[in-house]
Design a protein around this nucleic acid. Structure first.
Lengths: 334, 334
DNA sequence: TTGTATGCGTTATCAA
DNA sequence: TTGATAACGCATACAA
């Protein structure tokens, strides 16, 4: 039989024939085994060059039992936060000659397990970035996904490498900041319910707000438009400060306030999360909880890379975010 | 021998043994060949389920001569424009069961050919998004990259599918707009010199400006910071309107003007390219040349998909961008 | 309809 | 050091 796609133009056998050696020797030369006679080495290299030979990655994959590929699954490729993580991973992995496959789960918690498992089949390892699936589903699936690294998510009883952010600390910093500014009524624009980091922000917020200020929570989302649409209602609660699920939402709200002539931070303060590049370019510049996004990606790769080498990965890391006080927060003015 | 990674837990042979059939029959069942006895089909499915069998994608790839993977190469994963194209491709491809591998060429024209070729080895087809490499290098390389689709780039004498944007028309629309507003002196913040679309914008601009207004060109870049840094010098030329290479640069310049108290559009008008999501959320809202970014990705996939099926791809498409007049442009006020 | 045998392109074992 | 040869896991002619 033959593959129905055109078979690879030139194979290791062609090179072997031209160089008058065995395929095994060609393989050795291509893989820089230094146990080949210089003369043969030269012949092989010349033959390979003249034929334009390139080893088949698929065949190598099958023979070696590895693909040289890893995958990252993100909830939404449209979110700058995840783009940055992807960028960090991609740039770190390429140095070690790994390529990155990217899967967008479209914020669909129920489809994630299937998607993850299917993706895993085509690569050597996985990075699950802020997975939305349920704990127990991920736990069950874990053995079939290994090796994998979790970003922005921890799962009780699961001993896999994790790279995360202490959003609780971030929330407390925000609360302290707003309290110091005199705010007594705060609205939280809540992100996707499936987002564990949203849950963390929310619960810490409830806790930290107690006795300090009134807290209203509004269902929102994770994109500009979500913030834009919910902004008015947030203001209508009487809140004088708004904490957004992320920078996108915050900037969306800012847009609406600008349009309707609501002064920021004069009438209402706004805080975001992530510190995406655009946060410095909103007007006023967005006060936000800065998360080292690309570094999250790099750290994730460090761990996955170690696992791929069958080494012990570095210890879990949890970044403490830094509150970037910029222009969208100000003292309460009655 | 054995693969040095743990061999796949369960193979087609294990299923065959449990189901008491031949591996060939298992293969037929897994691939929905409808020539298998219902009883055997049942036995195979049950065996596969109980063993948790998943066919090895690598082995399938080798046997079928295809990987089920495509790749997209972009100059910079940090650019929202390319992110959107990636998103469009990824979402279109997954529907047809293709996964997407992403390669970031770091805006390095010289490394692109190697990167492209190496990437091509691991996938069935390629999308080159705004490649920065030289025409002749791409032409030479073309046979080894096929099938591939070009986005935002056309190469003389190269008969490969192309999805592009008529930036010339976009530039003329901008020029007409600014001229109508009375501007007599315009500065262009030039993008990466290796960017062909930058060259197109530049040459059309020179042409269109002739006899209408004075044109200053400033070397800039493609990111926020580039626009931020060059903004002052652009103003110092005496220009009353600034055309930026893209929205990122425009927004960067806007940020600087905001900081230094330069009124936009009162003192200077600003125009961008692309219409990234953030363009609606700058203040004022950015006047920009809107490019259908995700659609570029979808159209690219349409063509690549056809080529992968050995069908004739749809004709080349060239989008005419639409000028979105928003808040950063205004009549010249002396 | 089912099973046997072969090939996909490489790597790796083992004997020479 | 080199070359047969056997995997790797699957899909598919071909024979039964």
């Amino acid at each position: 039989m033959r593959a129905f796609e055109r078979p690879q133009a030139v194979t290791i056998r062609d090179v072997a024939r031209v160089a008058q050696v065995s395929p095994a020797t060609v393989s050795r030369v291509m893989n820089r085994r230094n146990s080949v006679d210089p003369e043969l080495t030269r012949r092989v290299q010349q033959a390979a060059a003249s034929l334009g030979y390139q080893p088949s990655a698929i065949a190598q994959g099958l023979a070696r039992g590895r693909t040289g590929l890893i995958a990252i699954m993100v909830p939404d490729l449209g979110n700058p936060m995840f783009q940055s993580v992807l960028r960090g991973i991609s740039r770190a992995a390429v140095v070690e000659d790994y390529r990155v496959l990217v899967t967008d789960s479209h914020e669909m918690p129920l489809e994630e397990p299937l998607l993850a498992r299917e993706t895993r089949l085509r690569v050597d390892g996985l990075v699950l970035c802020a997975p939305r699936a349920h704990d127990h589903e991920l736990s069950e699936l874990a053995p079939k996904l290994e090796p994998f690294v979790l970003v922005n998510r921890r799962i009780a009883g699961l001993a896999t490498s994790t790279v995360s952010v202490d959003y609780g600390a971030g929330v407390r910093a925000v609360v302290a900041h707003l309290t110091a500014l005199g705010h007594k009524h705060v609205a939280y624009l809540s992100g996707p319910m499936a987002s564990v980091s949203n849950q963390e922000r929310l619960s810490t917020l409830h806790e930290a707000a107690r006795g300090r200020f009134e807290l209203d929570v509004l269902e929102c989302g994770s994109m500009h438009e979500d913030g834009y649409e919910v902004a008015d209602r947030a203001l209508a609660t009487g809140a004088t400060a708004i904490i957004a699920y992320n920078d996108l939402v915050a900037i969306g709200a800012l847009g609406k306030f600008q349009q309707t002539g609501v002064a920021v931070p004069g009438k209402v303060s706004v805080v975001g999360f992530d510190d995406i590049p655009f946060a410095r370019y909103s007007m006023p510049m967005l006060t936000t909880v800065a998360v080292p996004q690309e570094e999250l990606g790099r750290e994730a790769w460090q761990r996955l890379s170690a696992m791929l080498r069958h080494e012990e990965p570095p210890a879990d890391v949890c970044f403490t975010p830094r509150l970037e006080v910029r222009g969208t927060t100000a003292p309460l003015r009655p």
